[in-house]
Design a protein around this nucleic acid. Structure first.
Lengths: 212, 212
DNA sequence: GTCTTTAATGACACGGATGTCAGTAACGTC
DNA sequence: GACGTTACTGACATCCGTGTCATTAAAGAC
């Protein structure tokens, strides 16, 4: 009669999801059992079945919580923006890095990698998200820069995934090596901006019209 | 009495590993059982225990087969090389992309992501490999380029991981999205080289020594 | 306060993967 | 071709995670 963890709520599902998230982070998706989640949530294993049929369902519900789209506002602000395109791109990439370093993003991606074939719709969703929210916005920024003469026109047909690649790499680096060699986010962002901006800037032409 | 798959060999371990590799690729590491491997190898499940104590051991043995170091020869050839540093870097990155697109590399990385915490020594090994074979070689190439005036001196303190990032990104892209949106290796490599080489090239100075 | 509803639980049956072991069949040896 | 050795196997015992169900206890209705 020590503890009396019995209560009833509509908040139960949320508690279960929180516990599941913690367990997934601690032991990975595959190795987490209903018993683990129940224990962490302080409830009986059978209780989970009241709310979720399977681990997959739990994961589904979790992703819906994590997946928000913070890039949207940036897309809408873009038209009104009147600073340099470099500054704009810098904001974009900075945002990307900060999103990439969030624990939830990393967890989601980790499960996507290891369990991807079991969640084909989640894969599709992510793909669409990267293309629509991420790359198309970047495309607009690049085009704006070229139009305003701030970026070199030659880079117009670059595959833009290479531009965001360092942020993606940072994400996976953290995912794999965080325990033995965590990376310096700030330094990585600076190197990223350095590399990209140097590359995008137009090459200053020697006297635009001829040398005599 | 249809089939008589009984024979005895020293080649058995190899057959088991091949079957395991195939199964890991087909269903993932966590979802592959000894029964699956045995079935594919055409032997009894118990036979596997003659050679491997656990799935982890199988994976250990597998990684040892996969992990070779093809970059080494390049490192040794570097000193004798007398072409441009751009060409050298191009060779380096091309090699990286081709290695990154090999099925075994992808499989290994996938398991590293999903099961990484259970193979800490493998994580360490990989980290060392990336640093020693990969980044330090790249460092030498970059330094050579700077010394010879082919690369801009400003990029000396760049975190070189951003330089290889597009290849890493391509790897993970394939790992996750291969089924719905496989990427064009050639095009990706070209964009990668474009981005990086544009960035590394020194900005042409207006008349090195004065304009008067 | 009694009754009804429903959240929550412990216990049970089931299935599937693991690891072991005694038995069997192939191979080498003489 | 008989014998010993060794690779191999099917069967057994065990463990663990899953899903269900009857029972219990808390909350709401009146």
């Amino acid at each position: 009669m020590k503890e009396m963890p019995k209560r009833r709520k509509i908040a139960r599902p949320g508690e279960i999801l929180a516990a599941a998230l913690a367990e997934f982070e601690a032991k990975g998706f595959a190795d987490t059992t209903f018993a683990d989640i129940a224990k962490r949530a302080g409830i009986a294993r059978a209780t989970i079945y009241l709310y979720f049929d399977s681990k997959d369902r739990i994961f589904d519900a979790l992703t819906r919580r994590i997946l928000t789209d913070p890039l949207e506002e940036m897309g809408q602000a873009l038209d009104a923006y009147d600073g340099t395109s470099e500054a704009l791109l810098e904001r974009f990439l900075t945002h990307l890095h900060s999103e990439a370093s969030e624990a939830e993003t990393i967890l989601l991606l980790r499960i996507l990698v290891s369990e991807g074939r079991r969640f084909p719709d989640l894969v599709r969703l992510h793909h669409a998200r990267i293309n629509d929210s991420g790359l198309s916005l970047l495309q607009r920024i690049i085009r704006r820069g070229i139009d305003r003469g701030e970026f070199a026109p030659e880079i117009a047909d670059l595959d833009l995934r290479v531009v965001i690649a360092p942020a993606i790499m940072a994400l996976f680096w953290q995912m794999i090596f965080a325990s033995i060699a965590p990376l310096d986010r700030e330094a990585m962002l600076r190197s990223h901006l350095d590399l990209v901006l140097r590359s995008l800037r137009p090459v200053p032409a020697f006297a635009p019209s001829g040398m005599g």
